[in-house]
Design a binder for these strands. Sequence first.
DNA 1: ATGCGTCCTACAGCCACTGTAGAAGCAAGA
DNA 2: TCTTGCTTCTACAGTGGCTGTAGGACGCAT
Lengths: 133, 133
Amino acid sequence: MAVEISIGDLSRRTDVKVTTIRFYESIGLMPPPPRSEGARRIYGADHVRRLAFIRHARELGFEMGDVRTLLDLADRPEMSCAQADDIAGAHLMAVDEKIARLSSLRGELVRMLDSCAKGRVATCRVIEALADH
Amino acid sequence: MAVEISIGDLSRRTDVKVTTIRFYESIGLMPPPPRSEGARRIYGADHVRRLAFIRHARELGFEMGDVRTLLDLADRPEMSCAQADDIAGAHLMAVDEKIARLSSLRGELVRMLDSCAKGRVATCRVIEALADH
DNA sequence: ATGCGTCCTACAGCCACTGTAGAAGCAAGA
DNA sequence: TCTTGCTTCTACAGTGGCTGTAGGACGCAT
């Protein structure tokens, strides 16, 4: 007999909020599950797997379009995984860029804070740095 | 005679889009400027300064609430700049956290990509890593 | 039967813009 | 003077990725 769990159970198992699960269904990321007599959603093991997959991809920062493609790929085991690698590679580059950008912001923030004499706004380096970049 | 520039000029000088300038006005970040006979916005030097300030703060990743506070502070030179330092300090911590998070994501992505044998999806480490975290 | 938690749908709101439509202003060329 | 074409105007919808709310219905234990 297959596992039959409610949306609340699915939520707890995958740590994805109930509303988010319904949202994923509404945008076609999760398939519409069968319903009980009282029209409640009934999920099974593959829903758990799919949602976990989505969640991990999101945690890694993949955006929805990428997640969609990765899910499609995961459903076609015979295909080459080159596309998955491409997506992950592109994402890695994007992450590297973000890190670089944040590091330079960090530098600027540290410089601002270090040079501030903790006096009045009139002589504050933080404010000044923002004013005359 | 004061400088009198159009919204397009202001946009070019500060590298902030026209629509964004109007948006900032609509949410009260920029003051509503005087208008020409034909109801066009007329800006002056202080608008340029204020918008540049906003832009720099946004570039540094401060969110709107912070920008608002920093602007208010900048308008009160006699105040202590402790609050500005607090905001910048909190932001620095947030940036550090983001960098840490991204670095660990990066590690995971690199591991995924390194261990992938570039074969079929069925044996793809990238897909697998997403499936069984 | 009652109470309580879970679930349902449908829609508004979040942030920080961006894009669109349709109209009007304005300067330069024919 | 007329026309062309750029800029500007207002008002509002859309973006991504959810989150929150209203107003019910379901289902189980007491």
